[in-house]
Amino acid sequence: MNRTLCFALAGLLAFALGGGPCAGNVAAADYPERAIEVVVPFGAGGGSDTAARAVVEGMKPLLKHGVVVTNMPGGGATKGMLHVSQQPADGYTVLAVTTSHLIDAVKPKTRAHILNDFDPLCRIQWDTSGVIVSGDSKFKTLEELIDYGKKNPKMLKFAGTSPGGWSEIQTVAFFKTAGVQVTFVPFDSGAEIKAAILGGHIHGAVEELAETLPLIQAGKLRALCVIMDKRHPALPDVPSSVECGLNYTHGLMRAWAVKKGTPPERQKFLLEVIRKALENPTYVKYIKENHLDVRPGYLGPQETRKYWEEEIAFFAEVLKDLGYVK
């Protein structure tokens, strides 16, 4: 055996063992030292994905090592959430949270819990829904629709996307506030719902407004009411739910969170970067064009947690009514 080679190898080994941890210590001092990953628990191109990417565009110039979006669809929004909860709490993995995670928190089978396993960074958007029917529907006002629904329990058929999820909750809870029992028919996507309403196969849907606006403005669809406390600037003739005497203003929210236990200074750093990204002109233009600025979306970490707790309590009640939770 060549002795020199042995020594050389031993030296190399010693260097590798000694040098490894040393290099690590130095780099750990300044965060972030690599790209931050934003996990979107839905497929690319959807509402959550577009929103996350719009924020990420604004974050890119602020982070030296960049930021990447990873789409992790599957199991509602469970798969992505589970993934983030299994990563180290080092602030390198951020979860794009949506209302469906809050709903998951109510269900007994939940695999990761948004309140217990995550720390909210901030809420970024609070979307507005509307009650949508076809442009040639016999229902011209919300009153007529509610009247019909009260006289014919369960005959009013409304489309939505996620059974036991946000779409069903907002449809059923809205009509329950109005004293109407509605039949909820789940479809796979917003596109299918719109086609079903336009084709006269179903009465209508309670849906986020931004996507349906062009069809409403063209007269193909009709909004009977917007679900918030004031009128929608793009639909000045459509009354708000509060105006119609319904105390119901819930809406889809989007927020960002990190795994619980992430060092506070890293959370603060991330929050600062996100806040700056939310002021980026590209993002401001994006939310304006998509009418996501109709009501203020931003909430700080504590307020977001409080808001989540309240929403979860509300969802628990609705899901109990629907029989999803005992």
């Binding site: 690319a44 191109g45 959807g46 577009t50 062009p214 069809l215 063209a218 233009k285 064009e289």
Partner: peptide, 16 residues
Amino acid sequence: AMLVAAFMIHGMQPGP
């Protein structure tokens, strides 16, 4: 559906 996103990025809403 991805093309819808592209339209929206450029300030257009595909529709009637």
